[in-house]
């Protein structure tokens, strides 16, 4: 069994429990053991707007806790993936950042070598585990579903730092969905942002941004939207807010990739936390046997 450290970030541990449930259930089935990074903190993403150094310090501190457990670190959150990857990049190239942060770490008896590898769930599943292994484990193929994916921003850009997928034509999440038997579509707004980072600055406007993608997909006609980030998920799943802020009749099932994976691996919907999704996921589950 392959084992690696898992860093969840804030959103999943404090509210997006269905992402945590579905990842914890599905990974052992694929031969992956996850070891939690304890005493972890926020990745630093939201502090970036306030003080960039403090934000980088938080990221490196989390990486140093993970390095004690494993050479490989998995994070299921897009935002965390960029924060950790960017901090690691800077740790490697900037002597001054390295020495300042190393001395802060020493105050807590922590030490960081900077040798671990950071994966997001998408590139870990696609590149490290592989599509074949996933499709071989499928017991309940999702043949009847036509789905759109939302890759999100922070696992794609800037490609000089993160390289989970092609920045202008990401396909990995689509291929992961197709490995479960479902069909995926290409759509004009695929690369568009969910608006999430504006949530703590201008909440109404942030939902105005997420509403565009939901309304676009309702017009096109798909069975659901698949996401791989807790912030994006919240922005698209909160359709009562979207309806209030932007009007329209938003009613599109939104699921985490790991929930979809779990259904294909034969898990029951509630085990994967599908009863926590606020969007009408029963429209999607009723089209498959589960």
């Amino acid at each position: 069994m392959k084992s690696l450290a898992v860093y969840w970030g804030c959103y999943i541990l404090t509210s997006q429990y269905q992402y945590e449930l579905s990842l914890r259930e599905t990974m052992p089935k694929l031969g992956v053991k996850l070891i939690d990074v304890e005493e972890a903190t926020c990745c630093g993403f939201l502090l970036e707007s306030i003080d960039k150094f403090a934000s980088t310090y938080l990221a490196i501190r989390n990486l140093s806790l993970a390095e004690k457990i494993s050479k490989d670190l998995l994070t299921p959150c897009n935002g965390c993936y960029l924060s950790l990857s960017e901090a690691l990049h800077r740790w490697r190239v900037e002597e001054s950042t390295r020495s300042k942060i190393a001395s802060l770490l020493r105050d807590e008896n922590l030490f960081f070598k900077g040798e671990l590898r950071v994966y997001h769930a998408v590139n870990f599943l696609h590149d490290s585990l592989g599509l074949r292994k996933i499709s071989e484990a499928v017991v309940n193929p999702l043949n009847n579903l036509k789905l759109a994916t939302h890759p999100g921003c922070h696992i794609l850009r800037p490609s000089e730092i993160v390289s989970a997928d092609d920045p202008e034509n990401p396909r990995k999440l689509d291929e992961l969905v197709e490995a479960l038997g479902a069909e995926t579509i290409n759509y004009p707004g695929k690369l568009d942002c969910c608006g999430g980072p504006l949530l703590s600055l201008q909440p109404e406007k942030s939902y105005l941004i997420s509403s565009r993608k939901i309304n676009e997909l309702e017009r096109i006609g798909v069975d659901g939207l698949v996401v791989s980030c807790p912030i994006c998920f919240k922005m698209f799943d909160s359709q009562d807010v979207i309806r209030r802020v932007a009007g329209g009749k938003a009613s599109l099932p939104v699921v985490y990739y790991t929930q979809l994976l779990g259904l294909a691996l034969g898990f029951k919907p509630d085990t994967l936390g599908l009863n926590l999704n606020q969007s009408p996921v029963e429209k999607l589950t009723s089209k498959i046997s589960c």
Binding site: C10, Y11, T14, T41, C42, L46, S49, S200
Partner: peptide, 17 residues
């Protein structure tokens, strides 16, 4: 909301309880 986040960070290390 950003200030709320920061005070939670200082209290528990995460952006919300």
């Amino acid at each position: 909301n950003l200030l709320k986040t920061v005070s939670s960070l200082i209290e528990i290390g995460l952006i919300q309880r």
